[in-house]
């Protein structure tokens, strides 16, 4: 993307999105109008704040377009950023899935009880947290290092275990992820 036009394109996109939001989204997705009459008295409705918000966004987009003409673009976004953040998103998705389902899967394989009944007991309550958390730490470090090593995964699992102990041992009432959801 041309550096000079980057901010202008961003500004224009914001203006278009704001106009669409004010005309289409806000009226359809709010429970009352900009102003409403309740028992004979005028009140500010739920649509006012979003309308002002999107209007301000549109004005900001216009100002950005004007500024871009004078100053050029200060955007630093390129395809490498998108590739990286997509990678981070993929790692986070896998980590959350591991965190959520490792415990129930382990319980189904190695216990007669359901995970819901076991989630307050050792070692079950740590399984998802350590596997999902260790995976996230290890894979993120590997992404940055651009190579996979067992050491960083070991570091991740140890850190996750330490974290579980730090939170769980002194504060018995706290729930580690994912035990509040299952």
């Amino acid at each position: 993307m041309n550096r000079v036009n980057g901010d202008a394109v961003l500004g224009a996109a914001i203006v278009v999105a704001s106009v669409l939001a004010v005309l289409v989204w806000v009226p359809r997705d709010t429970g009352s109008a900009i102003v409403e009459v309740v028992r004979g008295s005028m009140r500010i409705g739920d649509a006012l704040a979003p309308t002002i918000g999107f209007s301000l966004l549109g004005i900001a987009g216009l100002i950005l377009m004007i500024e871009a003409r004078a100053t050029g673009s200060t955007l630093r976004l390129d395809r490498f950023d998108l590739v990286f953040i997509a990678g981070v998103g993929g790692i986070f998705l896998c980590a959350m899935l591991l965190m959520r389902w490792s415990g129930p899967l382990a319980a189904a394989l190695f216990s007669d009880e359901s995970y819901r009944n076991l989630r307050g007991t050792l070692p079950w309550k740590y399984v998802g947290f350590i596997i999902g958390g260790g995976f996230m730490i290890g894979t993120l470090i590997s992404l940055v290092d651009r190579r996979l090593t067992a050491r960083v995964y070991l570091l991740g699992f140890v850190v996750a275990l330490c974290l579980a102990l730090v939170y769980d041992l002194p504060f018995g009432s706290l729930l580690l992820p994912p035990n509040g959801d299952v």
Partner: peptide, 12 residues
């Protein structure tokens, strides 16, 4: 760096 971008942040 720009007033427009500051206002975008506030609006969002």
């Amino acid at each position: 760096s720009s007033v427009g971008k500051g206002l975008i942040a506030v609006a969002l």
